[in-house]
Design a protein around this nucleic acid. Structure first.
Lengths: 224, 224
DNA sequence: TAGATTGTTAATCGATTAACAATC
DNA sequence: TAGATTGTTAATCGATTAACAATC
């Protein structure tokens, strides 16, 4: 009976860590839904992910009240609620910019389409690449970005360009009215506060891994 | 004159956030080195990255004393010190496991090799892929992993396999004695505490972006 | 020397966890 | 009802920032 109450209209953006965990909860719930499990408690949901039960409740509490005391959370109820919160209850027409190795691979990557991120236009600066076909889409010139943005209603852009081009391209993206950028270039980009950016810095991840391996007890060196 | 003093022998693993920022400092310093700048203060270094000067000093202080009061940090001194701290002052022979779109792209990606991560062996379960050549390396069967690990001294593995294979492959990787895993599979993997894992979850990043775009003032919808 | 800047301690801020009344 | 579990407040823990003596 209790329709999940409206989220907090105070509308503060949730902390990064909270949003990341909500994505994990959602994945877990999608699995439970497939398995046909009807309800789950915060402690069960947390245990599966190594997260404290109070944390699970607090995280969800950030967005509203979704649980049933004595029962837990109804999987069929919480799952769509979290999809709505994350904004993946609808498609996101997305541009891929930069079709080097990484860009081409991500265009073909299934994981994005599955979550509603539809790559519908490809752009590259290199005239030799323009016109090429990648996964059924023709690569466009970067100049074509403003027109394509309005025609295709592009909302997001994935940036897979070299470091020295990243800021310039980001400026073009912003000028077109695109509101979100996933930045794979190994350099931070600056955008107006109305535009959202998430950076995926692969080298930094790998450096962090090297640090951990080097400093985990037992050491690493074969020479030791 | 003051050779950077030995790092904290107490050897606690630095917090994730600290290590991430140290990677950023290093990149910044490498740029300064190329430009020939001799010294930099914590406030200058921080300003370039939007980080508080006290934070910069505290982060570096975690690993030792590298600065010179009244002067700042000598670029030519701090740069190699940070490389050593992160463990990228030497090559890391790395295996790529799973040669779908993402795996193949990452094998060709220059950013890894530049930082000392040398992908020297490729593995896939699919017999049709075994023997194929990717970027000059022949794809091996997964069964070949133990032998290749000792022959090539493999220290790290990059996992680009589907979700349902991730844990099984991780177990094989651990059994071979590989000490670090960069996991691109959209599912957390469990490994012994002596093994390090960094997860790169592309869908979670994109979901976070959708959340931010949806909840940033001004909204997003064309219907609004 | 005077000015600049570090390394580090103390103060602040934010995030996680514990505890428990309210509720099914 | 008794047992389970939520939502939320208070307590704890950790990370960031401010402040400043020490130093070049």
């Amino acid at each position: 009976m209790p329709e999940p109450r409206r989220a907090n209209s105070t509308e503060r953006l949730a902390p990064k860590a909270v949003v990341g965990r909500v994505s994990l909860y959602l994945r877990q719930l999608e699995g439970l839904l497939r398995q046909g499990q009807a309800t789950i408690s915060s402690s069960q949901l947390g245990a599966a992910l190594g997260i404290n039960d109070a944390q699970v409740r607090k995280d969800l509490g950030f967005f509203g009240q979704f649980g049933h005391p004595g029962i837990g959370y109804r999987v069929a109820e919480l799952t769509p609620a979290l999809r709505r919160i994350l904004g993946i209850d609808r498609p996101w027409p997305t541009a891929m910019i930069g079709l080097g190795n990484l860009g081409r691979a991500l265009v073909k990557y299934r994981g994005f389409r599955n979550r509603g991120f539809h790559i519908v236009a490809l752009f590259d600066k290199d005239p030799k690449k323009v016109g090429q076909n990648v996964a059924g889409l023709a690569v466009r010139a970067l100049d074509d970005l403003p027109r394509a943005t309005s025609e295709l209603n592009l909302a997001l852009a994935i940036l897979c360009v070299p470091a020295d081009a990243a800021q310039r391209v980001a400026d073009q993206v912003v000028a077109c009215g695109i509101m979100g950028v996933l930045n794979f270039a190994p350099v931070p980009i600056t955008v107006p506060s109305s535009v959202s950016v998430m950076a995926v810095d692969l080298s930094i991840q790998l450096e962090h891994l090297a640090y951990k391996v080097q400093n985990t007890q037992g050491g690493v060196s074969y020479a030791g």
